[in-house]
């Protein structure tokens, strides 16, 4: 089981925002939206685009982040691929907030494909 890594104080991550953080040599996008924190692999499963440079879509029933390259959207909660051209989920990671710090724990399970 991986450990929780601190990625910075909560004040570094205003709501809404998404930014690249490094967790154990992995690029992770940390998202703060509608009061929740989320962490996903910062990689679009379609062609590797950086999700942290993409737009957040938080008004929808399923809040997502969109890849800036071709617009593939991934659910913030579980990384599921919501729209084409992505067909595979990106990895979601565990986030917790403690004592004003945000922590991320990497998850390795690769499940959860589209449909």
């Amino acid at each position: 089981m991986n450990d929780f890594h601190s990625v910075g104080p909560t004040t570094d991550f205003p709501d809404p925002s998404s930014q690249l953080v490094e967790v154990d040599e992995i690029a992770v996008v940390l998202i703060h939206a509608a009061g929740h924190f989320y962490a996903l692999d910062d990689v679009c499963t379609h062609d590797g685009g950086p999700l942290s440079d993409g737009d957040l879509c938080v008004e929808e029933a399923t809040p997502t982040i969109a890849c800036p390259r071709h617009g593939a959207q991934f659910a913030l909660a579980d990384g599921a691929a919501v729209t084409m051209p992505a067909t595979k989920a990106t990895q979601a990671h565990e986030v917790k907030v403690e004592g004003g710090q945000v922590y991320v724990r990497l998850c390795d399970s690769h499940a959860n494909t589209r449909k």
Partner: peptide, 13 residues
């Protein structure tokens, strides 16, 4: 990563 040569190689870290 916007350059074709670097699209598959992420050096942001």
């Amino acid at each position: 990563g916007k350059e074709e040569e670097w699209m598959r190689t992420d050096i942001r870290l």
